[in-house]
């Protein structure tokens, strides 16, 4: 039965991907991509990767889709029919695919317990020693935050980079004579994005149902975010998923009640502060362990007992991840949403 389900999902995946390639309406393509991500999340669950499934659903089907839709609102949904030559790209991608197919014939059988991956001493230690060394039931969290904590620090930095990158790109002033305008504006960089009162920006004041529903919903979204953040040691979840959910709560608020109100609640400057703070918190844990005489991110030294130190370290770095991810998602959303408002104002 499980095999049939997975074959069915896989074929659905391929059908979805082909449809994405085929459709000309970019809204449709975006929604199909979101569906593909969601099917992928289901497949990840069947492959026992619950944490990954959670993230794929939140990011691939959630945040990415919001970003695409936000962009499409600014650039329009129609794809012009392409006159580009398609023979060479097709040949190239098929050739690359051919190399992969060629490789698969000597790959270990899927699901077999004797593959190098399963018998590796890495796997052995993560599965058998980490319950004693780190004592966190969710091994993904243990590996993510401790054994390979530096990768996760890098990942936090990547999301920080994306946050400041989007703000840098989208806060540039519109139009071709950018230099002149930019200098005038340079003293108050985001003046157009912050406290400007404009009642027209309040999204749909008459939609009573969304207002009421979201007012009821948002506290639970945020609560769930906290749960995912702090329950990541025991079940699927952790800083990244929590950050996305938390940001989703604010984005929902912003979509229903308007960007201005959200910005009063959480000004851009504060979001920027949190964006940096999360990275500094994560790195700070590493620096403290260095000051205690260990290596960077060696949580064993944080407290008297190594296991307690690991717990504290993981808690703090996950918090750092959660804060930076929330702030980065909000920064990116502010960037895109703010862009559409400035465009509306300039009458474009």
């Amino acid at each position: 039965m499980e095999e049939f389900t997975s074959v069915f999902l896989m074929l659905l995946l391929v059908a979805g991907a082909l449809a994405v390639l085929h459709v000309r309406n970019l809204f449709v393509a975006t929604m199909l991509l979101s569906a593909v991500s969601f099917i992928m999340a289901l497949i990840f669950v069947m492959l026992d990767a619950v944490d990954v499934a959670f993230t794929e659903a939140a990011v691939g089907a959630g945040i990415s889709t919001v970003l695409y839709l936000g962009t499409l609102a600014l650039v329009g949904p129609h794809e012009k029919s392409s006159t580009k030559k398609t023979a060479l790209p097709l040949l190239l991608s098929l050739a690359v695919g051919g190399v992969l197919i060629y490789a698969t014939f000597e790959l270990p059988t899927v699901g077999s317990p004797d593959t190098p991956v399963q018998t590796s001493r890495l796997t052995d230690r993560f599965l058998n020693e980490s319950p004693k060394e780190i004592a966190v039931p969710n091994i993904v969290t243990a590996v993510l935050a401790s054994y390979r904590g530096f990768d996760t620090f890098g990942e936090t930095t990547v999301i920080f980079t994306a946050g400041i990158a989007v703000l840098l790109i989208l806060s540039q002033v519109r139009g071709r004579r950018e230099e002149d305008v930019a200098i005038e504006e340079s003293t108050t960089p985001q003046s157009d994005l912050t406290a400007e009162e404009d009642t027209s920006l309040q999204a749909s004041p008459h939609d009573l149902v969304p207002h009421v529903v979201s007012k009821l919903l948002i506290p639970f979204v945020l609560l769930f975010g906290f749960y995912v953040q702090f329950h990541g040691d025991f079940g699927p979840g952790g800083g990244f998923q929590a950050g996305v959910i938390f940001a989703a709560g604010f984005i929902l608020y912003s979509l229903v009640f308007g960007l201005e109100y959200t910005k009063k609640l959480l000004p851009l400057r504060l979001v920027e502060f949190f964006l940096a703070f999360g990275v500094l918190l994560y790195g700070g844990v590493g620096v403290v362990s260095m000051l205690k005489g260990g290596n960077f991110l060696d949580y064993n030294l944080l407290l008297a007992s190594p296991v307690a130190g690991q717990h504290l370290g993981i808690l703090l770095v996950e918090l750092g991840v959660g804060i930076t991810v929330t702030a980065a998602m909000l920064a990116i959303f502010y960037g895109f949403a703010g862009r559409s408002e400035t465009n509306n104002k300039s009458g474009a």
Binding site: D48, A49, D51, V52, T123, F126, L127, T152
Partner: peptide, 11 residues
């Protein structure tokens, strides 16, 4: 199942 690929793909 092996946790390491999950960690890598989260990243």
């Amino acid at each position: 199942s092996n946790p390491l690929p999950h960690v890598l793909i989260l990243t």
